[in-house]
């Protein structure tokens, strides 16, 4: 499964990119995250929500092809 992943806010600093396309063999949100945590260990310490195809989803969701966004909360004002 090929996913396009977008990183918002400080997550882009952790991963060093705003977006990337990656191939995954498993397809639940938590599986995808555990693979990303292996690639970017610092990501594990961050708080964020996951959106699939522009809709916030739970970590148990099964995802299909498309776009994933990792969205952290912003506190600044």
């Amino acid at each position: 499964m090929i996913l396009h992943i977008k990183y918002f806010g400080l997550l882009a600093e952790v991963t060093g990119c705003n977006e990337e396309t990656l191939e995954f063999s498993k397809n639940s949100v938590s599986d995808v995250l555990s693979i990303l945590f292996e690639k970017y260990p610092d990501l594990k310490e961050k708080d964020f929500q996951v959106a699939q195809n522009n809709e916030i989803v739970s970590k148990e969701m099964v995802i299909s092809e498309g776009e994933i966004a990792l969205l952290p909360p912003f506190s600044g004002g």
Binding site: L10, E45, K46, D47, P72, G77
Partner: peptide, 19 residues
């Protein structure tokens, strides 16, 4: 949207990181 408040130190504010 964000049910759980973030962990301490995981999110910086403007004065620390700039805006």
């Amino acid at each position: 949207l964000f049910p759980t408040p973030p962990k301490q130190g995981s999110v910086a504010n403007c004065s620390d990181v700039g805006v």
